[in-house]
Design a binder for these strands. Structure first.
Length: 793
RNA sequence: GCCGAAGUGGCGGAAUUGGCAGACGCGCCGGACUCAAAAUCCGGUGGCCCUCGGGCCGUGUGGGUUCGAUUCCCACCUUCGGCACCA
């Protein structure tokens, strides 16, 4: 019999699909929109190298969904592109030498070859790359829409500076105080930088405006919720007479206001500069130099008394003002009212400096005490009443504070989208007029990072007249964070060659939100949050008619090597090329999904791929054998036929509803094993066709070849098999008989027996009788088609 | 500290609504074919005991609910993830 030879059949079918334009999905003409449509997307790759097995897992999963939906009557959009701007690609270029464009394009080309070799069903006519002018002119256009509405602004603010990458890094991509890209400790710097006003959408982003079919993992929502960090409380004004200032304080515990015994300013607070005491100024200078993490790691709290006092608005008490670095300028108002009795940090500080501690909450009864007119009120009511009272006095109001900071998106690097702004001495920040877009990324002599934007070195590009007054002005030389590109790339896929708009509103509203987005959870507070922010703004701008970019979201687990995540930056990657060469794409695709649940982290190991290869070979042989038998008439009702129907039901439910990809493979293995045991079964051919049809999303080349040998064509267009409910249940089943919950016998019985008949079967079993031992039967439980439990105790 | 997820054979894992724990695969053991090997095929494979009929134990630990719990409830342990001097 002919051997299974993937190296021969895989290129053959890839060519067939290409010539048939099998995976191309043109936009439907207006008014002819198909009812069932599906936008399948996986996070796009950085072309900073080539694909590793983590990508293979990600895209194969998307591929299985694509085939499954196509064959279930959906019109499926499944595009691909490259996140080609940004640090990963640029750093790769620096390492290898040469221009970032050459290297990213070379990597993109290599990835394209890998993707084709793996046989993924991708519509390449929609390919986009972030670094191509056709794409980034619309990134610039979108930036201008944000800028004009004050949602993109330039300001001096504390930012994270990565000394290795020589650029500002967003909070979202600083992990444990280190740059997520290179692992270097970032420094806090105050710099003039560009920000997107994502904080204005903090409340909106806490709400998921999903379509009725939408579904986000709870843990991802939790991560975003923690990141946004909404706290409800009040802002209360404290008077400093000496400075003639009313200082606002944010607190979540206005109910403890009577327990305040001192007051603290962050060392960076603007008022600190106005305190005429050398030790205060020295302290502020010292702490400013230290990073937040170091400050948090201190075992003993530090601080200095200012000699000044504030008035507690609730009782007129004079509270001493301290400056201490446990109060952070970035959160709330940079000041706190200290209640050492009911706040651990305040208590620690009070104990260190021997400040008074005054209890105002009776924890046992949950009421406030020693709090003037509010004494005796339950905590929640006291919070409300105290704020109400303060409001009447003009000394406070309910307030909300967030952990979320604005998104800093300007980078002092070369390989990114230029920011279309011109700095004019007279007119300030002037947007480049829309008709002058794109602002093309200029060539520079040396793009390596030196702390100043490389674009500034090209003076011919840099110096331009102000669009308003025509006087000499300079272009913005920072470039955009690559996460700006990825915040909207998925919208461009729907209309990728549009040259008068980023996309057509009707087309984008037809395809979006994305039916299924697949990618790593590491982007929960970055890319996924930024994209939601972008879509919210774009809806306000009337560009799109939906509020969420991603309807369903799924996170694949990480592949690990030696216990740590497989990633290019760690250097512990392994690619698919050698495996594909040795075993074929179908084996690699099937194996990566067979390894385990796709949403769990898995240690990468090649032991085991042999098992999948053996399965594919077994399938090959048994199907060729079945193909030689004459087709059977009608629908034979045999145990094998029923197994085939059960397998259809399981695979359909697992892929479609449960989003579980490894168990359908097991199910087809079981079917194949049974087919091998019963080659002469009248349903053998039916079982063979079913197995081939079900394995097609995983092993499309093998399946197509076998389908052809079974006398059919174009399995990729063949409707997904349907399980016949009448044939799902076997006509007999193994009745489990328990006595007092323990299995004592099993009998093969007809499926259509009544409860009474089942009990009769059970009690007539000799083995069961032995356990009953003539004793009293107190109760009998019957689970139809499963078991009988006889209770004697 | 707060929030969230998860603990099942030697290994990856299955058990979907409370109903046979260990499907499927890896590995391992034995056998067939072979001069030999590879490939392939057949059988076995949670632990302990056994008179070979079978019995007992067993899904992180301890309790509970139930005729029946990997599944539900309570407490705890461990691992992983998010947040964290966030007022």
């Amino acid at each position: 019999m002919e051997r299974y030879d993937p190296q021969q059949i895989e290129p053959k079918w890839q060519q067939v699909w290409e010539e048939a334009k099998a995976w191309e999905t043109p936009n439907p003409p207006p008014g002819e929109a198909p009812e069932n449509h599906w936008y399948q997307l996986e996070m796009l790759p950085y072309p900073s190298g080539t694909l590793h097995m983590g990508h293979v897992l990600n895209y194969t999963m998307g591929d299985v969904v694509t085939h499954f939906r196509r064959r279930n009557g959906f019109t499926v959009l499944r595009p691909m592109g490259f996140d080609s701007f940004g640090l990963p690609a640029e750093n790769a270029a620096i390492k290898e030498g040469g221009h970032p464009r050459e290297i990213t394009e070379r990597n993109s080309a290599a990835i394209r070859v890998q993707m084709r070799r793996l046989g993924w069903a991708i519509d390449w006519t929609r390919e986009i790359s972030a670094h191509e002018v056709d794409f980034y002119r619309w990134t610039q256009w979108l930036f201008l829409q944000f800028f004009e509405r004050g949602l993109a602004y330039r300001a001096g603010a504390p930012v994270n500076w990565c000394p290795n990458d020589q650029t500002v890094v967003a909070n979202e991509y600083v992990v444990d105080g280190r740059c997520d890209r290179c692992g270097t400790q970032v420094e806090a710097r105050i710099m003039d930088q560009w920000f997107f006003k994502i904080t204005a959408y903090a409340d909106e982003l806490l709400e998921y405006d999903l379509p009725e079919w939408g579904e986000w993992p709870e843990r991802t929502k939790t991560i975003q919720r923690n990141w946004i960090g909404r706290s409800e409380g009040a802002e209360i004004l404290f008077r400093i007479d000496e400075l003639d200032e009313d200082v606002p304080v944010f607190t979540t515990r206005p109910d403890t206001l009577f327990g305040a015994t001192f007051f603290v300013l962050a060392p960076e607070h603007p008022l600190v500069a106005r305190i005429p005491r050398d030790e205060v100024q020295d302290y502020a200078k010292q702490t400013a130099a230290r990073r937040g993490e170091d400050r948090a790691a201190e075992t003993v709290k530090t601080g200095v008394f200012t000699g000044m006092y504030v008035t507690n608005p609730v009782n007129g008490e004079q509270l001493p003002i301290w400056v201490a670095d446990y109060v952070l300028m970035e959160y709330g108002t940079g000041t706190i009212m200290a209640v050492p009795a009911h706040d651990e940090r305040d208590r620690e500080f009070a104990e260190t400096f021997s400040l008074p501690i005054r209890e105002v909450i009776d924890e046992e009864n949950g009421v406030v005490v020693d709090s003037g007119d509010f004494t005796g009120l339950p905590v929640d009511e006291a919070k409300r009443k105290i704020v109400e009272w303060l409001h009447e006095q003009g000394r406070g109001a309910p307030a909300v504070s967030y952990r979320l900071r604005d998104w800093s998106f300007s980078r002092q690097r070369y390989w990114g989208c230029p920011i279309p702004i011109i700095h004019c001495e007279e007119h300030g920040l002037v947007p480049v007029p829309e008709e002058e877009l794109p602002v093309e990324l200029p060539e520079v002599e040396d793009y390596r990072p030196k702390g100043v934007p490389p674009l500034a070195s090209n003076e011919a590009w840099l110096n331009v007249p102000c669009p308003i007054c025509g006087k000499p002005a300079k272009r913005e030389a920072d470039t955009m964070d690559t996460f700006v590109d990825s915040s909207w790339y998925y919208l461009r896929y729907v209309d990728p060659r549009n040259d008068h708009a980023p996309f057509d509103r009707r087309v984008v509203d037809f395809w979006c939100p994305i039916s299924q987005y697949i990618g790593g959870i590491d982007h929960a507070t970055g890319h996924l949050l930024y994209s939601r922010f972008f879509v919210r703004v774009m809806r306000e701008l009337g560009l799109v008619g939906f509020g969420e970019p991603f309807g369903r979201l799924f996170h694949q687990g990480w592949l690990q090597m030696g216990g740590s995540k497989m990633s290019k930056s760690k250097g512990n990657v392994t690619g698919p090329d050698e495996l594909v060469e040795q075993y074929g794409a179908d084996a690699v695709r099937t194996y990566i999904l067979f390894m385990g649940p796709a949403d769990q982290d898995m240690e990468w190991t090649e032991t085991g791929i042999e098992g999948v290869v053996r399965f594919l070979r077994r399938l090959w042989r048994v199907v060729l054998d079945a193909a030689e038998r004459p087709p059977t008439d009608g629908r034979p009702d045999t145990a094998l036929a029923r197994k085939a129907h059960q397998t259809v039901a399981k695979a359909t439910d697992d892929i479609g509803r449960r989003f579980q990809f490894h168990t359908p493979i097991s199910a087809v293995m079981e079917l194949t094993n049974e087919l091998i045991q019963a080659p002469d079964d009248p349903a053998a051919r039916f079982a063979a066709e079913t197995a081939v049809s079900l394995i097609q999303p995983y092993a499309p080349h093998l399946a197509e070849e076998l389908w052809e040998r079974l006398g059919h064509e174009q399995l990729w267009e063949e409707p997904w098999p349907q399980a016949d409910p009448a044939l799902l249940e076997p006509d007999t089943f193994e009745l489990v008989i328990q006595v007092d919950g323990r299995v004592r016998d099993r009998l093969e019985v007809p499926s259509d027996l009544s409860e009474e008949e089942l009990i009769a079967c059970a009690t007539s079993s000799e083995r069961v009788k032995a356990f009953l031992d003539g004793g009293e039967i107190r109760q009998t439980i019957v689970v139809p088609r499963k078991l009988v439990n006889i209770v004697t105790k």
